[in-house]
Computed example of a mutant assay.
Amino acid sequence: MSSIYTAEALATGAGRNGHVRSGDGLVDMDLAIPKEMGGPGGATNPEELFAAGYAACFHSALQGVARQAKVDLGESTVGARVGIGPKDDGVGYALEVTLEVVIPDLPHEQAQQLADQAHQVCPYSNATHGNIPVTVTVSDD
Rank of each mutant, 00 (worst) to 15 (best):
I4W: 00
D28A: 11
E8C: 02
G92C: 00
Q63W: 13
G64R: 12
G90S: 12
Q63P: 04
D24C: 05
G85A: 12
L114H: 01
V136S: 09
G42K: 02
G23P: 00
T12M: 05
Q63T: 15
V65Q: 08
G90C: 05
G90A: 11
H129P: 01
G85K: 04
V27C: 02
N45C: 10
D105K: 14
T128I: 11
L99H: 09
E36Q: 13
A69L: 10
V97R: 04
V102P: 01
T44N: 06
P46G: 04
G39D: 06
G79R: 03
H129D: 15
L26Q: 11
E100C: 09
E8V: 14
M29L: 14
G15Y: 01
L114K: 00
T98N: 10
Y93W: 09
I84V: 13
I84W: 05
T44F: 08
G130D: 06
G85S: 10
A94D: 15
G15A: 13
A94L: 04
A69I: 09
E96S: 15
S125P: 01
D88H: 15
S3C: 05
Y93L: 13
G130E: 05
G85D: 10
I4M: 14
N126P: 05
A94G: 15
A56E: 05
G41A: 08
L31M: 12
G13V: 08
P107L: 10
N45E: 01
L10K: 15
D30G: 14
A52M: 12
A51C: 09
V91I: 13
A9Y: 08
L49Q: 10
Q110V: 06
P86R: 15
E75S: 14
L114G: 03
T12V: 09
